[in-house]
Nucleic acid binder design. Structure first.
Lengths: 242, 242
DNA sequence: GTCATATGCCGACTATGAGTCATTTTTCGT
DNA sequence: ACGAAAAATGACTCATAGTCGGCATATGAC
């Protein structure tokens, strides 16, 4: 029905409008220093109306995060058109990731806040799953690249994919957090790139050695993790929420 | 003068009392859900009195963080009595670090909040420097271990110490954040240990190869970073705030 | 054209909690 | 026992997230 449909569209537009206004404010001043009244004013709406579209200030924040992670994911897809080594793809992915978040550090703060304080944010299971799924999709690209690296014989087939995805993502986040902390916005980008490049190359170099007797043979760490991982309940994030 | 002195001591005790109360509440409910009135009540003081000892709720939070980082640093010192390889020391340090923060995830949230939102927290330069210095001291242990590893010929002397300290710390934080996100408190500790062990061993294995022609010889990433680093203003955190 | 209904919108109001300050209470030397 | 200095207080101010009763506008039947 035309009417219903038009109404839906209107509603979606209004939602987007609010998100746009809020985004500008959040990026400029940070979550705490933005008031819902300001968002309403910038959207040319009354405060009450904001709550017709979002259940809380936090939800607006989370939706912005989700939207941007989706954008990141889109950019990421292009990586697979160019033919490169897995190591190079991984580097490119990492640079993209870092640049994406550094360009708006508030985005990274959002992500970390979401990761570390999910419970305290009081989202519904629905809202929570939604954003977790989006994040997972974006991060799964790492697995794809690793898989490709095994196929192309760059990495031994014994490495655990999901597990290394996990570590690499953690590494990226850790390094980005560090540089945001360290201030000095000037050469930040170059420096992050340089750090990521070394960290990754070092790590990749290590990965290639997995088979060559470096690990304590009594206990293959990779295998061990893989087993534990299967049994575990991390799945919500990393296995697609089955 | 005895009076002055006693007063000072009283004041310190009162400060500690407030910190104790606040700590319990923060660890139990998280920063946002604790009110200053609650802290006052638990300390058997009026709300106004709290502000005689601390300038804001945030400052209480930061002081708790500082105190605990100092505790961590103390525990860390014992690592140097036992004689181990550098790699093993690094592992032990990392496990200690992870356990320390996992045992009270709110502590880790505090650290990350401090790292990512320093400006928004509105501390004085004094307060800021204070906690940064404490953190740096605790983290410098990584440099000491790396140095030891070079002396003992475990690592090539070409690796950049400060820089690797940087990356390793970032890696630890990233992995911890990930596991706090992933929920599943059950096997969390084992799983973090397993992840850290692999990540570190892989990385160390890579480090040992630094000299062996793996890196693009046109541009030694380590040397490059070292140079940039010297010129930069990251020093506040990593060089001791000169 | 006009009335009824629904849908959307509003901003004054409530609730909460951080931080302040004029006043009271305690401490301690004389 | 007194008075000055120090410490403690809690009622108050102010900011802001979220609510709710009522108003406005659009649609459609007659």
């Amino acid at each position: 029905m035309g009417l219903q449909e038009r109404r839906e569209k209107e509603k979606d537009n209004r939602r987007m409008l609010i998100l746009e206004s809020a985004r500008g404010l959040f990026f400029a001043k940070g979550f705490k220093d933005v008031t819902v009244d300001e968002i309403a004013q910038l959207s040319e709406l009354g405060k009450g109306s904001i709550y017709l579209y979002f259940s809380s200030k936090e939800e607006i924040y989370a939706q912005i995060l989700r939207h941007h992670i989706e954008m990141f994911h889109q950019q990421t897809i292009a990586l697979f058109n160019k033919r490169k080594t897995a190591v190079d793809s991984l580097l490119e992915f990492s640079f993209l990731y870092a640049d994406f978040f550094l360009q708006e550090p508030e985005l990274f703060r959002m992500l970390m806040t979401f990761m570390l304080r999910t419970e305290q944010l009081g989202f519904s299971e629905e809202q929570y799953k939604n954003i977790v799924a989006t994040t997972r999709k974006a991060i799964d690209v790492i697995s794809n690249i690793l898989n490709y690296g095994i196929d192309s014989k760059e990495f031994p087939s014994t490495i655990d994919i999901k597990y290394n995805q996990f570590i690499l993502w953690g590494m990226l986040n850790g390094i980005i957090a560090l540089y945001i902390f360290t201030g000095a916005e000037g050469k930040r980008r170059e420096k992050i790139h340089s750090s990521i490049k070394s960290a990754l190359t070092t790590h990749m170099q290590g990965l290639k050695q997995v088979n060559e007797g470096f690990f304590d043979s009594r206990k293959n760490v990779y295998k061990q993790f893989a087993r534990e991982y299967e049994e575990s309940d991390d799945g919500r994030l990393l296995n697609g929420g089955a």
